[in-house]
């Protein structure tokens, strides 16, 4: 299974083996990774599953749909070029080794 590492603002790391087809948000919630709120349950409605993808890994992630791009305008922590909503990062074999940073706040 592809492995994804979550790093919070304090530098705490957690690495998960994630089944292909599960989102980075779902895996975080199912495995108790703090720092991802996902208030709408993954409908791309709330912008509370915001993560920063490691700068050199953006190409590993699926392209951004219009909805996600729009909702990223409403994140509680600043949007950056490497901002993504983790509910839209559905894990594929190409994403093995992905590192995401959770922001200071989601709400």
């Amino acid at each position: 299974m592809p492995r994804v590492t979550y790093i919070d603002i304090a530098g705490n790391e957690k690495t998960l083996d994630i089944p292909v087809g599960t989102s980075v948000m779902q895996a975080a919630v199912l495995n108790g990774v703090d720092g991802i709120v996902a208030e709408c349950g993954g409908s791309c409605m709330c912008a509370t599953c915001h993560v920063y993808v490691r700068d050199d890994q953006l190409a590993m992630t699926p392209p951004m749909a219009e909805d996600e791009d729009a909702m990223l305008e409403g994140t509680a922590s600043p949007r950056r070029p490497n901002s993504r909503l983790s509910c839209q990062l559905v894990v594929s074999p190409e994403m093995d080794g992905l590192v995401v940073y959770t922001p200071e706040t989601q709400t």
Partner: peptide, 11 residues
């Protein structure tokens, strides 16, 4: 179906 308006309106 205008999520950008929503996100910015919230801000």
């Amino acid at each position: 179906n205008r999520p950008a308006d929503h996100a910015i309106a919230r801000r």
